[in-house]
Simulated scan of single mutants.
Amino acid sequence: MLTLAFDTTQGACSAAISQEGRLLANAFMPMQRGHAEHLLPTIEQVRRQAKISYGDLELIAVTIGPGTFTGVRVGLAAAQALAQVHDVSLIGVSTLELLARAAVPRNNDESAGIIATIDARRGQLYMQAFDALGKAVTLPVIDAASPRIAPSSNHSGLIVGSGAEILQSALPDWRIIHDICQPDASILATESKHWRDRASRRPPSPLYLRAPDAKLPTGIKALNSKLS
């Protein structure tokens, strides 16, 4: 299945295209601001690199949060518009799920768990625990760093995401995978088979965990006008 995936939820803008799990093109640009301005050029870059047309797409995958309010809305607005224009199904995947999925190949212990965590600022973390295969075993939460997030069956495991170092202070026996810090659309594209049962013509809902404290930027309106 020819899949376009992208992420703008945190400190990067990334996009990728895969076919049946094989990566055809990808781009990853670290940034704290400017996601709305960079997303469409990044998508166009990977489309050209993959040598496909938008009409060839069979699936669009997008991250739904948690992350920054603006970043989450930018990605969802673009995904919804592209899906409507090109009549393509959508899947939404949480950033915590995506981070955990990236860690699965690095987990050599079937009894060890994976915790994905994102620095939510204000002394809080977005957190969710997964088993060794990346299946969620807790609901996503926002809270201070605490050993309570670790399932009682897991005494050690892997921590990934931008909040990893903060969380490790509460879970010293857990190991950080430092190079899995930001969600990456290349993983979302190549691993989309794990979430394909969510495919729908209806847009996915954002996952905030915290009430938004920002207004929609004008860049999102410009993004929608370009896509329509």
Rank of each mutant, 00 (worst) to 15 (best):
S162I: 04
Y126R: 09
D7P: 04
H194N: 12
N108A: 11
F28S: 03
S186I: 00
A79F: 00
A100R: 02
A61N: 04
A199G: 04
P204A: 14
G67D: 11
S200G: 01
P204K: 15
H178D: 14
D179F: 06
I159N: 05
T42N: 05
D7K: 09
Y54G: 07
S18I: 04
L125M: 09
G75F: 02
K51M: 08
A199W: 03
L59N: 05
S153D: 13
A78D: 11
E97N: 09
A81H: 10
A100K: 08
P140E: 14
A25I: 07
L90C: 10
Q84A: 11
V141Y: 07
L23G: 11
P203H: 07
T138Q: 10
P151A: 14
A136K: 12
A12E: 11
S111L: 06
L57T: 06
I177D: 14
P105F: 10
D173V: 01
L207Y: 10
V72G: 01
Q80C: 06
E165H: 13
A81T: 09
Q128H: 01
H86R: 09
L98H: 12
R121C: 05
P206F: 08
A5L: 03
T218L: 11
V93Y: 13
K221G: 03
S111D: 15
I114S: 10
N154M: 15
D56G: 02
A78F: 01
D197Q: 14
G21L: 02
A120L: 03
R201L: 07
Q80M: 10
I52N: 07
A25T: 13
A77V: 02
K135T: 15
H35T: 03
S162N: 08
D119R: 08
P183I: 00
H178F: 02
Q124E: 15
A116L: 08
A214I: 04
A77K: 03
I114V: 03
R175E: 14
L96N: 10
N154F: 15
A144W: 01
E58R: 13
S146F: 01
A189W: 09
A145I: 06
P204R: 14
E110G: 00
L76S: 07
V62P: 00
S192M: 02
T8N: 06
V85S: 09
S152C: 00
I166K: 09
L223G: 11
I180N: 10
Q128T: 01
T3A: 05
A15I: 10
